[in-house]
Amino acid sequence: MTRPGNRPPSASEQKLAASLAGAVDLSGLKKRAEAKRDPVAAARTSGGGTGPVTLVEVDEATFEQEVLVRSTQVPVIVELMSRRAPTVLTSLLSSLAEEGGGQWVHAVVDVDSSPGIAQAFQARAVPTVVAVAAGRPLADFEGEQPEDALRQWIAAVLQATEGKLSGVPGSADTGEPDDPADPER
């Protein structure tokens, strides 16, 4: 083991390295425990923070920007949930959004702190999931769903919106023609 500057490790560093040999990574257990306590926070921190936005936490103050405006670029899958009754749906949707690489965004709304959003969607139960595209609800469902059913539902949403939205948030495509003087564009 070498350190920057090619200085040999000290005796304490050698002991530490020896004590960690064969150590077991328990971070997976920690993530599962965090997901049970706060599924939104666990999903938010599981991605590593690089790449396109795939998860946003939404409240009544941020709903317009994070859901309505963002849905003009990519579909936004809004999950109405309650932190008082966490489900695995939050982490499953977050994983699928991350896997999708920015094709769609998972927006999480805690109905206990933002009841107006639940009322706007006329949600009768939690979890309720609503796909929003171009600022409008497109499809929805209530309750837990198996992963394969979620994948099919998301694929149908993506197919329904294909070519109809402007693309990944923050992309160079603004929807404006390259040459505004050219009426043929």
Rank of each mutant, 00 (worst) to 15 (best):
G28P: 03
R70N: 12
L138E: 10
A131N: 10
L150K: 12
L26Q: 10
I77N: 03
V157M: 02
S114E: 13
S71H: 02
V74R: 14
P86W: 08
Q145A: 15
F63C: 07
L138D: 03
R32D: 14
S95T: 15
D110H: 00
G49M: 14
G49P: 00
V67S: 07
S19T: 07
I117N: 06
A41D: 11
T45G: 15
L150A: 07
S95H: 04
A35T: 05
L138F: 08
V130K: 06
I117G: 06
V129D: 01
A97P: 07
R136L: 09
V69T: 14
G102Q: 06
T45K: 05
S82K: 11
V132C: 04
V109H: 00
G100H: 09
Q152M: 13
D38R: 06
A43C: 07
L92P: 14
D59I: 09
T50D: 13
A107T: 00
D110N: 02
W104L: 06
V24W: 00
A35L: 03
V129P: 00
G48C: 04
E79L: 15
A125N: 06
R70W: 01
W153C: 13
M81I: 09
G102S: 10
T128C: 08
Q145P: 06
S94P: 09
F121P: 15
G100V: 12
P75S: 11
V78E: 05
I117E: 11
S82L: 14
L150T: 15
T54D: 08
L93H: 05
E142F: 04
G116I: 02
G22E: 12
K31F: 04
E34P: 14
Q14M: 14
A155G: 09
R84E: 08
V56D: 05
W104D: 07
G49Q: 06
Q14R: 14
M81A: 02
D148P: 15
A42N: 13
A43I: 03
V24Q: 09
G28I: 05
Q119Y: 03
L138H: 09
Q122D: 10
K36R: 08
L26W: 05
V67Q: 03
S94N: 09
S19V: 11
I117W: 00
L20P: 01
V108M: 01
V58E: 01
A139V: 11
E34D: 15
P127Q: 08
K36N: 08
G48P: 15
I77T: 08
T62C: 01
S114I: 02
T87V: 07
G101R: 01
S114T: 03
I154A: 06
P86D: 08
E144A: 12
E66A: 11
D112W: 03
V126E: 01
A131H: 02
T72K: 08
A61M: 06
L68N: 13
V76P: 07
T87Y: 10
T90F: 05
F141A: 08
S91K: 01
F141M: 10
A33L: 14
W153F: 05
L89F: 04
T62H: 03
K30E: 14
F121Y: 00
T54R: 04
S27M: 15
G102V: 05
R32T: 13
R84D: 04
T128N: 07
R37I: 12
S94Y: 02
I77R: 05
T90W: 02
T90P: 15
